[in-house]
C-alpha cells in the first residue's frame, strides 16, 4: 500500500460520513443569544465591580466607626442592656436591605 492508496481510503471514509447536522439557522440563532449575553456582561462589568467596591467601602467605614466608638458602645451595652436588641435588629434589617438591593440590581439580573 502506498500513500495514494491511503489517501483514497481516507477520502472514501470522509465521503461516506453523512451525519444529521443541526440547521445553520439554529446555530446562527444560538450565536446571537450568546453574543448578546457576552455584550451584556461586558457592559455591566463596571457596575458589578462598583457594587463590590461600594460594599467593601461600607464594611471598612462600619469597622472604623465601631473601632472608634468601641468604648462608648461597651459602656452603653453594660449599663443599658435594652439598647442591644434594637441595635441588633437595626443592623440585621440594614444588612438584609443591602443584600436585597445587591441581589435585585439590574447588574445581577
Amino acid at each position: 500500500m502506498n500513500d495514494s492508496d491511503l489517501d483514497a481510503i481516507l477520502k472514501q471514509m470522509a465521503t461516506e460520513h453523512r451525519p444529521q447536522l443541526p440547521s445553520p439557522g439554529l446555530i446562527w440563532f444560538r450565536a446571537q443569544i450568546v453574543r448578546k449575553a457576552w455584550q451584556k456582561e461586558r457592559i455591566e462589568r463596571p457596575l458589578v465591580m462598583m457594587h463590590g467596591f461600594a460594599g467593601l467601602i461600607g464594611a471598612v467605614i462600619l469597622l472604623l466607626l465601631v473601632a472608634d466608638n468601641w468604648g462608648q458602645m461597651q459602656d452603653a451595652m453594660d449599663h443599658r442592656s435594652w439598647f442591644l436588641l434594637p441595635l441588633l435588629l437595626l443592623t440585621l434589617t440594614a444588612s438584609l436591605a443591602s443584600g436585597a438591593i445587591l441581589l435585585w440590581s439590574p447588574a445581577k439580573r
Binding site: 471514509m13 460520513h17 451525519p19 447536522l21 445553520p24 439557522g25 446555530i27 453574543r35
Partner: peptide, 28 residues
C-alpha cells in the same frame, strides 16, 4: 451601539453557505 459596531462579522447567508461547505467534514 455594540450591535452596530459588530457589522464587520459575517452575515447569516454567508455563514450558512460556509457551514454547508464545512459542517459535514468537520463533524467527520
Amino acid at each position: 451601539m455594540a450591535e452596530s459596531r459588530t457589522g464587520e462579522r459575517s452575515s447569516q447567508p454567508e455563514f450558512e453557505a460556509f457551514y454547508l461547505r464545512t459542517g459535514r467534514l468537520l463533524h467527520g
